[in-house]
Design a protein around this nucleic acid. Structure first.
Lengths: 98, 98
DNA sequence: TAAAAGTGCTTTGTTTTTCAAAGTTAAATA
DNA sequence: TATTTAACTTTGAAAAACAAAGCACTTTTA
């Protein structure tokens, strides 16, 4: 039997980053505050996890306005989609033995 | 939309503990060294994760002998099976939106 | 118009978690 | 007898997670 965890992506070990990605897969764009409320996080905590995902180029940021109010939204990148899918495939392979 | 990560079990955030559980689900008993080789871990690292799982009563230890040589094996408990399944269900629910 | 509140962070510092390395005890093998 | 193996425990360092506070800016409210 080979190492069942070797293909899991370390970035997605975090439940929060997993949650962000899962939200971004179904919402092609979501705001900082919506995400914050959805995942029940403090600003700093969310911001740092978003930063990790951005560094990995799994998500990208859009800074814009709603009317004249600033609004930051996030979306998943092609690379992010691919990496997330690969992770889920690895997870599935790992547990399909059930 | 409600918090998609609320039902994930914190104990299974760790890829290693996830790996241990997934191995134990299909092997009703496995030895320390087999697990160590399978997951490619140092003794101390594996031992401490096994300890976490044991504290949670998700696995149990059997200390015995092969001939007169000590042999430690691990198996999953009913509680562990249940908790692991609940975690996988939560994961699945989270990603079935795809 | 002054105060309060919201947005989206960054910074700071603490707590928690992870991990490798070394030490340990007892038995097995060369 | 010396070395090796099994299965840890202990120690300590590094990394990660997190809350709280601060901040710059804008908008809303009193």
């Amino acid at each position: 039997m080979k190492n069942p965890i070797a293909d899991l992506n370390k970035i997605f070990d975090s439940r929060i980053r997993l949650g962000v990605m899962s939200v971004l897969v179904v919402n092609n764009e979501i705001g900082f505050n919506d995400l914050k409320q959805m995942l029940e996080l403090t600003d700093g905590n969310l911001a740092s996890h978003l930063n990790t995902l951005e560094q990995a180029e799994f998500i990208k940021v859009h800074k814009g306005f709603i009317g004249r109010k600033t609004s930051t939204t996030y979306s998943i990148t092609a690379l992010g989609k691919q990496a997330f899918k690969a992770h889920l495939d690895a997870l599935e392979k790992m547990i399909r033995k059930l």
